[in-house]
């Protein structure tokens, strides 16, 4: 080790572990931020936030080891607890919003925009090529249930 220690790029293994874990934590944080900014599905946005929390947890644990202190690990436990609370509230909100609009798309809530912003319009998309055979339809049986007229405007027929 003394010969290697003279090399200008030599890093103590503990310092190198800190450096590497902080880099991976930064990458996870940034990737989660990309997902949160760009995806429109509310469940995927929620998963992206969880990825950001994972990156932060890894950094905290690495700092805790570097300083030889249990504070880092304690913080990670608190992060896990806060993530659990966040998951409960987020999934409850997703459930509520889904029941209102029958869609996981955040753009379904675009009327919450500011007053001077134009409404959001989806550009028409080309159809995806079908994969495999379509499922055979069931033979209709029984009486068709009556649906309220108002409901047919927002709930797709299944």
């Amino acid at each position: 080790m003394p010969a290697a220690a003279k090399h200008p790029l030599f890093m103590h293994p503990e310092t190198a572990l800190l450096n590497n874990c902080l880099l991976v934590g930064a990458a996870l944080f940034g990737l989660g931020a990309i997902g949160f900014l760009s995806r429109r599905n509310m469940i995927v946005m929620f998963l992206s936030v969880e990825i950001m929390l994972q990156g932060a947890s890894l950094s905290l644990a690495a700092w805790g080891r570097f300083h030889n202190d249990f504070g880092g690990q304690t913080f990670v436990l608190f992060v896990i607890a806060v993530a659990a609370s966040e998951a409960a509230v987020a999934l409850a909100l997703i459930l509520t919003l889904y029941r209102r609009r029958c869609s996981l798309d955040v753009a379904a809530w675009h009327f919450l925009r500011e007053a001077d912003q134009p409404p959001f319009r989806d550009a028409p998309l080309p159809d995806e090529p079908a994969v495999g055979e379509p499922d055979p339809p069931l033979a209709p049986a029984g009486v068709r249930p009556r649906r309220p007229e108002e409901e047919s405007q927002w709930r797709p027929e299944i």
């Binding site: 930064a26 940034g30 429109r40 798309d105």
Partner: peptide
């Protein structure tokens, strides 16, 4: 598949912003 899974908001801008964040942190 739903439309919202097939389209992203501003894919280029958000990728640039997130990667800039990773670069600055690194």
């Amino acid at each position: 598949r739903a439309t919202c899974d097939r389209v992203s908001w501003e894919a280029g801008l958000s990728a640039a912003a997130g990667i800039a964040l990773v670069g600055i942190l690194s």
